[in-house]
Amino acid sequence: MGGWDILTSLAKYRSVLGILFGFLKDMGSLGNGHVIAKEIFERLNQDLTVAFDQLALILRDGERYKAFLAHRGASAQQLLDIVQELLDLFPGSAIRPLLYKALLRLSRASELHPACFPLYSLQRVGKQVAAGGFGDIWKGLVRGHNVSVKIMRAFRDSDIKAILKEFGREALIWRQLSHPNLLPFYGLFYVEERLCLISPWMENGHILEFLKNAPPDTNRVSLILDVALGLEYLHGEHVVHGDLKGMNVLVTPSGRACITDFGLSSIADAMTLRFTHSTATKQGGTARYQAPEVLLGEANHFGSDVYAFACLCYEILTGKVPFWEFSNDIAVSIKVIAGQRPSWPETTPNDALWVLVQDCWAQSFDERPAITQSFKDFWVLRLRRKLFQPQ
Rank of each mutant, 00 (worst) to 15 (best):
residue 277 H to R: 11
residue 277 H to K: 11
residue 277 H to L: 12
residue 277 H to I: 09
residue 278 S to M: 09
residue 279 T to H: 08
residue 279 T to F: 11
residue 280 A to L: 13
residue 282 K to A: 08
residue 282 K to D: 05
residue 282 K to T: 13
residue 283 Q to W: 00
residue 283 Q to N: 02
residue 283 Q to D: 00
residue 283 Q to R: 14
residue 285 G to K: 04
residue 285 G to N: 10
residue 285 G to L: 03
residue 286 T to N: 06
residue 286 T to P: 13
residue 286 T to W: 02
residue 287 A to V: 15
residue 287 A to T: 15
residue 288 R to I: 03
residue 288 R to E: 10
residue 289 Y to S: 08
residue 289 Y to L: 02
residue 289 Y to R: 03
residue 289 Y to N: 10
residue 289 Y to C: 07
residue 290 Q to F: 01
residue 290 Q to K: 12
residue 290 Q to W: 00
residue 291 A to F: 01
residue 291 A to P: 00
residue 291 A to W: 00
residue 292 P to K: 10
residue 292 P to I: 03
residue 292 P to V: 04
residue 293 E to I: 01
residue 293 E to W: 00
residue 293 E to D: 05
residue 294 V to C: 02
residue 294 V to E: 01
residue 295 L to I: 08
residue 295 L to M: 09
residue 295 L to C: 09
residue 296 L to Q: 15
residue 297 G to M: 06
residue 297 G to H: 08
residue 297 G to I: 05
residue 298 E to N: 13
residue 298 E to R: 12
residue 298 E to F: 05
residue 299 A to T: 07
residue 299 A to W: 00
residue 299 A to P: 00
residue 299 A to H: 05
residue 300 N to Q: 13
residue 300 N to E: 01
residue 301 H to R: 06
residue 301 H to L: 07
residue 301 H to I: 03
residue 302 F to G: 00
residue 303 G to K: 06
residue 303 G to V: 02
residue 303 G to H: 02
residue 303 G to T: 02
residue 303 G to Y: 01
residue 304 S to W: 01
residue 304 S to D: 03
residue 304 S to F: 01
residue 305 D to S: 13
residue 306 V to E: 04
residue 306 V to Q: 05
residue 307 Y to F: 13
residue 307 Y to A: 07
residue 308 A to R: 03
residue 308 A to W: 01
residue 309 F to S: 06
residue 310 A to T: 11
residue 311 C to N: 03
residue 311 C to V: 01
residue 311 C to E: 04
residue 311 C to S: 14
residue 311 C to D: 07
residue 311 C to P: 03
residue 312 L to Y: 04
residue 312 L to Q: 07
residue 312 L to E: 05
residue 312 L to S: 10
residue 312 L to T: 10
residue 314 Y to L: 13
residue 314 Y to V: 09
residue 315 E to V: 10
residue 315 E to Y: 03
residue 315 E to S: 10
residue 316 I to F: 02
residue 317 L to N: 04
residue 317 L to Q: 04
residue 318 T to F: 01
residue 318 T to S: 14
residue 318 T to G: 05
residue 319 G to Q: 06
residue 319 G to R: 08
residue 320 K to G: 02
residue 320 K to E: 14
residue 321 V to R: 14
residue 321 V to N: 09
residue 322 P to K: 04
residue 323 F to K: 07
residue 323 F to Q: 09
residue 324 W to N: 13
residue 324 W to I: 01
residue 324 W to G: 03
residue 324 W to V: 05
residue 324 W to Q: 10
residue 324 W to R: 03
residue 325 E to Y: 09
residue 325 E to M: 07
residue 325 E to F: 01
residue 326 F to D: 12
residue 326 F to R: 13
residue 326 F to K: 12
residue 327 S to G: 14
residue 327 S to T: 11
residue 328 N to D: 15
residue 328 N to H: 09
residue 328 N to I: 00
residue 328 N to V: 02
residue 329 D to G: 10
residue 329 D to C: 12
residue 330 I to G: 12
residue 330 I to R: 13
residue 331 A to S: 15
residue 332 V to W: 00
residue 332 V to H: 00
residue 333 S to P: 00
residue 334 I to Y: 02
residue 336 V to I: 15
residue 337 I to V: 15
residue 337 I to L: 09
residue 337 I to H: 06
residue 338 A to D: 13
residue 338 A to I: 01
residue 339 G to C: 11
residue 339 G to Q: 12
residue 340 Q to K: 14
residue 340 Q to H: 15
residue 341 R to T: 12
residue 342 P to I: 07
residue 343 S to M: 14
residue 343 S to H: 14
residue 343 S to P: 06
residue 345 P to W: 10
residue 346 E to P: 08
